[in-house]
Amino acid sequence: MLGEFEYLLLTAAAQLGEDAYGAAIRQEIEDATRGRCSIGALYTTLDRLETKGLVRTWMGDPTPQRGGRPKRMVRVTAKGVRAARDFHAAVMRASRGVSWASNRVGTQP
């Protein structure tokens, strides 16, 4: 089972497709969560996902915009897609009927 940050990272990478690399994924996560995503969390989670075989990473070409430095390109593997789908399905199942998922008035005080 994925962790929630791992799921966010896989989702961001899948959405970016061919353009998925460290800084772009980070921006995507920050836009989605409206919170800050640290580089430490990003790259250590990427390493973990790669060890699990859920993503594949490689060094991209250097660009002038990055001061001639390379990117760490990311692609979600088939195993990663399955893991993200399972996580999403589990969250949907777990959320069935709760107030914040069904837009009805909640039971909280």
């Binding site: 460290g22 580089i39 250097p62 660009t63 915009q65 990055r66 001061g67 430095r69 390379p70 760490r72």
Partner: peptide
């Protein structure tokens, strides 16, 4: 190190 420095420059 290179990747991170590149990310800083880009963002």
């Amino acid at each position: 190190r290179d990747i991170v420095r590149g990310d800083f420059a880009e963002s």
